[in-house]
Structures are given as structure tokens and as C-alpha cells.
Amino acid sequence: MHDRLDISMRANHVFFWILVIVALVFAAFASFSGDVFYLRLATEALILGGLALSIDILLGFTGLLSLGQALYFGIGAYVSALVLREEPSFWLAMGAAGVSVLLAGIAGGLIANRVRGVYFALITFGMAQVVAKVVYNSRELGASDGLIGIPVIEIPLGLITLSAGDPLGFFLLTLVIIALLYSVSAYLLGTPFGRIIIALKANEKRVPYLGYSTWAARMAAYVLAAVIAGLAGALYPMLRGFVSPELLFFATSGDALIMVIVGGAGTLAGAIWGAVILTMLKSVIGSWTEHHLIVIGLIFMSAILFMPKGIVGMLKPFVERNLLRNSARQPKPEPERTAL
């Protein structure tokens, strides 16, 4: 009747829709006031939200702590950058980045999924560091200087053509892409396959007794997360016009992890909320004081102490209660999508 996962996902959708509405109001306001900087900063926040989303699939649903998710974000960004420098085509860059991170995710998954727990965290951390060092020392990839000169591309979208240099247009496109990544993740986690993944987090030892392969489910979750991180990463050079090895460093993975925890692990929408909040906070506090790292650290610590479930995680029970009450009033508990 009232499936807990279904209610939980519908509550996540509520938070995601609030984010979309806030984003649209902000975009309208920003374009009306002629702002460029905050629109582009918000676009970057959404792109980082894609990375955070991929971490949440692993941490919040599969129960895997990845400390190296920037690996796939960075591979997506570098492949996209290399393609765009040769051929300024949005679809080609996204396609190439998607295929590359799919392969990289399978390779990384084969290595990382041999171990569990803290060893998984260390292996993912190690893989990202190794690849970051290789990029850092490869002159063909721009070495420590990174790659600049990525052109501002025109993005053909059927009827209209959009420029990556148009802050409003690119912001909306990024919002659509992140919404797609969110929807695909939410949909997959709602399927029977998704329930196996969630069962892994609850009790991995029992899953084989139900007749399912834990390895295949973990692998699938890992590759899915890699592809999401990579597709988000592919948008980065279109926005900023460059890539640098820092995108693969632990600072990127660590920041994204903080976004997930502040927003609320296991809520999907919380990861993106966390990205938006942390990016905005960093910008404002960074301009306000040079001791911004201390302030961000204190905020992170208080978030963990006082809101261990994160912002969305803390507010979610209220929404769930409302959803339950609403569905109880209806004669048939049909999953009513338009009600969202």
C-alpha cells in the first residue's frame, strides 16, 4: 500500500521541484537584472551537483564511500575539452565523455569492487590520485597548466541553437541536464534493481540469500555513478573554457562529499541542494574573509553535529507525513505523478 521507498522518492521529488522552481525564479530575476556572474556561478553549482548526485548514489543508497569520484568528473571534463578543441560539437563531446566514463567506470569498478568498507574508500581515493598525477605530468594533456582555449560552442537543440556563452541559456540547459540525470537516477533506484542496491546498504550479507548477485548490483551502481559524474564533468569546460588537473584532485571529491552530507545523503535532491548551498556559501564567505576555510569547516562540523541527516534529510519526514496523509485520503493509492 504505502511503500516506504515510493513515499521517500516522492518526497525527494518534492525537494527537487522546489529546487527547480527556485532556480527558475532566480534565473528570471538574474536575467532581468542583467547579472552574469551569479548565473554562471549557479551553473557551476548545478554541474557540481551532478558530481554530488553520483556520490549520493554510492553513499546514500549503495552504502559505498567513494573518496575519488572526481576521477570520473575529471575524465568527463578532459575528454569533453579535448573533443571541443578539435571539433566544437556539444553532442559529440557529451557522447565521447559518456562512452569514456562508461569504460573508465567499468575498469575502476572491477578494481574497487574487489574490496569493501574502508578499503573501498582507500582504493577509490588512490585511483583518483594516480590518474590525477598522470594527467599532471602529461604534457599532451597540458600537464600542471591544464588545457585552455576551449571555444565557446553553439549547441544545436532541434529548433533553437543555444550558445554556451549565453549565461541564461546555458544555465537552463544545465538545469535540464541535471534534471535528466536526477530523473534517471531516481527512476533506476525505484525499480527492482534499485531495491537490490538499497538492500546492499541495509545488509549486504543477506542479499545473496535472496538469490541476487551483490557483485553485479554494486558494479551497476558504481558504473551508473561514474557515468553521471562524467556527464556532469563534460559540461564544465563548456562553462569555464578550460580544464586543469585540480578537477581530479581530492579537493574536488572532498567538496562534493561535503555537499552530499550537508544536503542529506540518501535523498538525491539533497546532493544538488548541498552543491548549490555550498557553492554560494563559498563564494560569499570567500569574498568576505580570507579565513573562509575555517568558516566553511565550522559550518560543516555544525551541520554534522546538529543535522546529521543533512538539510533535506531533516525536512523530509514532514513532507513524507503530508504525502502519506494525502494518499490516505485518496480512495485508491495509485502512484499519482501529477500530484507532485
Binding site: 556572474f37 554562471r40 597548466d145 591544464g146 569555464r240 578550460f242 586543469s244 588537473p245 563564494s283 569574498s287
Partner: peptide, 28 residues
């Protein structure tokens, strides 16, 4: 960090409207 630097540079150019910018350290 170049990724942080470009964001801050955009802020300085478009929000603070600086006439000139300097200070970057690492070549990237």
C-alpha cells in the same frame, strides 16, 4: 586552484568591476 581562480576572476570583472587584475601565482 585554477577552477576557483576563474570563478573569482569573473566575480572581480563583472561584480566588482575592477579595471585591472593581478596576483595569480600558479601558471595554470
Amino acid at each position: 586552484n585554477p577552477a576557483v581562480a576563474v570563478t573569482k576572476a569573473e566575480k572581480l570583472f563583472t561584480v566588482d568591476n575592477v579595471d585591472f587584475l593581478t596576483g595569480t601565482v600558479n601558471s595554470g
